[in-house]
């Protein structure tokens, strides 16, 4: 397995407050990595470092190196728009544009300058299929995305991120606002997607992390406490803090 993204000694400051302490973590292509930990532990802060979403936070400062295929994403010459095309993101709440289903997925392609309508239609269908949504919406592609259910909207957002063919997909609690059936659909689509893609997912659901991830990283108080294969983390974690958190003995 090749390493797609690599964080070396990454720290994040909000003003004088050090929110993340010297994190070292690598993400392999074709694998899903779950970031877990209590609220405020730094996992979402770390996730946002991976496509420079922290640039948008006033007073935020990132130290250390994050490499995407060997290139430092924090280098001054980095084209942030290009970075975010290669490192897509799906957020906690579904956020479709008030456009048709088709146009939601086509949006990124048009922004990136694609004009061939046949090619766009092909990419839209592929992205919707990979997000396990196409069969449910193929007869109403030009209806408003706002008429979809919550779970369908979230898969639409996944399709929208996939349309521009990213190498890495970041997911920040993508199923936390969904019912169990919609959650299952999203989880299934994540597992379908991982081939050829690097997926990093923040989740508060231990069961979800155990179900869908290949690797798990446990964060606590801004530090990476333990990282390893999900099978190992959820059966015999090495660190007591990890054991206490995943078995609900924290606090």
């Amino acid at each position: 397995m090749s390493i797609t993204m690599k964080a070396r000694d990454v720290s994040v400051f909000y003003g004088d407050h050090k929110a993340l302490h010297n994190v070292n973590l690598s993400f392999e292509s074709g694998k899903v990595t779950a970031l877990i930990g209590p609220s405020g532990c730094g996992k979402s802060t770390f996730l946002r470092c991976l496509n420079r979403m922290n640039d948008l936070v006033p007073g935020a400062r990132v130290e250390g190196v994050i490499e995407l295929d060997g290139e430092n994403i924090n280098a001054p010459a980095t084209n942030v728009a290009s970075l975010r095309r290669r490192v897509g993101m799906v957020f906690q709440k579904p956020n479709p544009f008030p456009k048709s289903i088709f146009e939601n997925v086509a949006y990124g392609l048009r922004v990136n300058g694609m004009k061939d309508e046949n090619a766009i239609a092909e990419r839209v269908e592929t992205a919707l299929t990979r997000a396990a949504l196409f069969n449910e919406v193929k007869d109403r592609l030009h209806s408003s995305a706002m008429g979809l259910s919550g779970g369908q909207q979230q898969r639409l957002c996944i399709a929208r991120a996939l349309a521009v063919e990213p190498e890495v997909l970041l997911m920040d609690e993508p199923a936390s606002a969904l019912d169990p059936i919609a959650t299952r659909h999203v989880e299934e689509s994540v597992m379908e997607l991982k081939s050829g893609l690097t997926i990093v997912i923040v989740t508060h659901s231990m069961q979800q992390a155990a179900r869908i991830s290949d690797e798990t990283a446990f964060f606590y108080m801004g530090k990476l406490i333990e990282h390893g294969e999900t099978d190992v983390i959820f059966t015999r974690p090495a660190q007591k803090q990890t054991e206490d958190y995943i078995t609900g003995r924290f606090g």
Partner: peptide
């Protein structure tokens, strides 16, 4: 409980 780690063992 869907136990994990030591609880699961």
């Amino acid at each position: 409980l869907q136990p994990v780690a030591g609880d699961l063992r």
